[in-house]
């Protein structure tokens, strides 16, 4: 039996886990192709108009698997960590898919809700196994193996790789003119179509990128502890925490926020990061908002101007007081 996994949304966070879990149980795993205009177009056509770009792209990926697989895996992640939630669109994802796309094969829905306790997240995989007619012990064994693969993957990310490198088995990082921090959800940053090749464009200009996945969770937690309130969005916390860690440690020469139009979590997180940066660190920053645009001219202009700004600043470093801007402006 062939199980299809859409290459969208949380795929970039969890693909080693999912791939290994289904593979170990003896299923053939089929991943939808990389996002293309055809996938985006079919997603936009089938999805409700109000949804954000990544949700529309997910619809496109599901549609592209129809006819190629016997079942499609749709994760419903309500919560991945006790007392925290993730974006509500992920909660309703299976229902959105069912009501918008016709001719679907069997849907394998993973119901993961760790809001009360973390064990519930593991039980979800046993339930998933049951749906496939797999014995409990077999599912547990497959999950254990899958978790080892997932940890291996996460440890590679902590060493500075991005999920794209790990996917393409590209180990080279190369020489660098500086480090650019990128803050954005994995389904934007690592989808080369949505992000308009942001990572490869920066690397081609000689910069090393630092992404949220490169920052240790303990570090993120420590930084977020200092905030006036607890953040209850897991992925929002990850972005804010990793962004603050990059700024605080002055680990980056510049920071780019990549957001999709209409993202509610980003609206808070990026505003907060920009305010903290403005008040305390003053590291060059830029916000790039993506939507269904396919022309790259506007994107490239902003990116080029951002790099110019950093290089111009660096080349004039000797003329600037190291303690920020002087009072009179001269």
């Amino acid at each position: 039996m062939k199980i299809g996994i859409p290459r969208a949304l949380l795929y970039y966070n969890y693909y080693p886990l999912w791939h290994s879990f289904f593979g170990d149980l003896g299923y053939q795993v089929v991943i939808s192709p990389a996002t293309s205009r055809a996938i985006l177009d079919s997603g936009v056509m089938s999805c409700v108009d109000d949804a954000c770009l990544p949700i529309k792209v997910f619809h496109g990926h599901v549609a592209s698997l129809i006819g190629k697989v016997d079942a499609i895996f749709i994760p419903r992640l309500v919560s991945i960590y006790p007392k925290e939630f993730i974006c509500p669109k992920f909660i309703g994802l299976p229902e959105m898919i069912k009501s918008s796309i016709k001719g679907l094969p069997h849907l394998l829905v993973l119901n993961c809700n760790a809001h009360r306790n973390l064990d519930a997240a593991y039980k979800a995989y046993v339930e998933l196994g049951k749906m496939l007619g797999v014995k409990r012990s077999q599912a547990v064994r497959a999950l254990q193996k899958a978790l080892i693969n997932q940890q291996l993957y996460e440890s590679l990310l902590k060493k500075g790789q991005t999920p794209i490198d790990t996917l393409n088995e590209d180990k080279s990082i190369g020489e660098s003119k500086g480090v650019i921090g990128l803050i954005g959800h994995p389904y934007l940053l690592y989808d080369e179509f949505i992000s308009m090749g942001l990572i490869s464009k920066l690397r081609a200009r000689g910069y090393v990128v630092m992404v949220p996945e490169n920052v240790a969770q303990s570090h993120i937690e420590a930084v977020c502890k200092e905030l006036p309130k607890k953040l209850f969005w897991s992925y929002g916390k990850k972005l804010l925490g990793s962004g603050l860690a990059m700024l605080k440690g002055r680990k980056v020469d510049g920071i780019i926020f990549l957001s999709s139009f209409g993202c509610g979590i980003d609206a808070f997180i990026i505003e907060l990061l920009q305010r903290y940066n403005h008040r305390l660190y003053q590291i060059p920053s830029a916000l790039i908002t993506v939507d269904e645009h396919s022309g790259q001219a506007g994107f490239n202009t902003r990116l080029e101007a951002f790099i110019d700004m950093i290089e111009w600043r660096n080349s004039r470093e000797g003329h600037i007081s190291p303690h920020g801007t002087s009072v009179l402006g001269h």
């Binding site: 139009f261 830029a286 908002t289 700004m309 600043r313 004039r316 003329h319 001269h330």
Partner: peptide, 14 residues
């Protein structure tokens, strides 16, 4: 502009 260099910029979004 600060101290003779571009220190920040923004363009209209969408």
């Amino acid at each position: 502009l600060r101290n003779g260099v571009v220190s920040d910029f923004a363009m209209n979004t969408v």
